[in-house]
Simulated scan of single mutants.
Amino acid sequence: MQTAMVLAPEISVVVPVFDEAGAAPDLAREIATAFAGRSFEILFVDDASRDGTREALNALRAEIPQLRVLAHRRNSGQSRAIRSGILAARGPVIVTLDGDGQNDPADGPALVDALAAGGADLAMVGGERIKRQDSQAKKLASRFGNGIRRRLLRDTARDTGCGLKAFRREAFLQLPYFDHIHRYLPALMLREGYDVTFQPVHHRHRQTGRSKYTNLGRLMASLSDLLGVIWLQSRSRNPGGVDEL
């Protein structure tokens, strides 16, 4: 038991990937470099890719001993892949980032440090992308969606679409799961009585592959998700803490 506790990492970096054979290997190396000197593991969750993503990652396991590769048997979406990684993670602190390489892994340690410095009530530090390297149409759609969501949910988040986040595994496991939950983590953390904060992170051009989302597809999913989260907030009764007497 003592050996297992010593070997357990402090940080688990979870990366969902789908058809990212071109980006995933270099991203794994970047993550290993960014977290060098810390106690960490890297979990790539392959969401039933149709290309060589799984094989490319498996080939890196000798080079990166902290790397673990999980594989969905059926494609289930980004949120499910993130959840699969978190359930399998051994670290109490989770860092997530997108598998397309647009998030800069070098920003991850700063989010972890901010989380550690924030005290027990701080459950999540979210990234907010600066100088976004997306099309103008995507940036406008994101700005509109974030504005509506922030006004209705009062979650204080200006960029919930940023995949780079650091949060406490224990806090995430208390949240109700649904598809696309990764876009509503700030609101759901606040619902449970935790604090959340944000800090700027870099954003990069996509070098390989293509986006798995369209503006119309994201809009249609967001409408039902938003109504669901509003309902969850309305049904929440927070005791403000629990004391054992």
Rank of each mutant, 00 (worst) to 15 (best):
Y184S: 04
R150G: 05
P176Q: 10
R158S: 10
R168C: 06
P176V: 03
L173G: 05
G163S: 14
T156M: 14
R150F: 00
R149I: 02
D155H: 08
A187M: 02
P186A: 01
D179A: 11
D159Y: 02
G163Y: 13
R168F: 01
H180L: 09
D179P: 14
L152N: 13
R169D: 09
K165I: 06
I148S: 13
Q174G: 13
L185N: 14
L185Q: 14
H180N: 14
R158D: 12
Q174F: 03
D159H: 05
H180E: 12
H182E: 15
Y184R: 11
L175W: 03
R169W: 10
D179S: 12
R191I: 01
R154Y: 07
L188E: 13
L175E: 06
D179I: 08
H180S: 11
H182Y: 13
R158I: 02
A157T: 03
L153A: 08
A157M: 09
D155A: 06
L188K: 06
R150L: 01
F178M: 07
D179Q: 07
L153P: 13
R169P: 13
D155W: 06
G163M: 12
R169V: 09
F167A: 04
Y184I: 01
L188H: 07
R169F: 08
F167N: 04
R158G: 12
A171K: 05
G161P: 00
P176E: 13
R154S: 06
D155L: 06
L175P: 05
A171I: 00
Q174A: 10
G161Q: 10
D179E: 12
T156V: 14
E170H: 14
A171C: 08
P186N: 03
L153R: 12
I148F: 15
R183E: 12
G163I: 09
L173F: 01
D155N: 11
D179K: 11
R151G: 14
R149Q: 15
L164G: 04
R150Q: 12
Y184H: 12
L190C: 03
I181L: 06
L173P: 02
R150N: 14
H182D: 15
A187H: 08
L152A: 14
A166I: 01
R191P: 00
T160E: 13
H182P: 07
Q174S: 07
Y184E: 05
A157G: 02
L173C: 04
M189R: 08
I148M: 15
A166P: 10
R158P: 00
R191W: 00
M189T: 08
T156G: 11
L190Y: 01
R151H: 15
P176M: 08
D159L: 01
R154I: 01
D159G: 08
L153E: 11
R149S: 12
Y184T: 03
F167G: 06
Q174D: 12
A171V: 05
L153H: 09
L190K: 09
D155K: 07
L153N: 11
L185V: 11
F167I: 02
A166H: 01
R149N: 09
R158K: 12
P176G: 07
G163C: 10
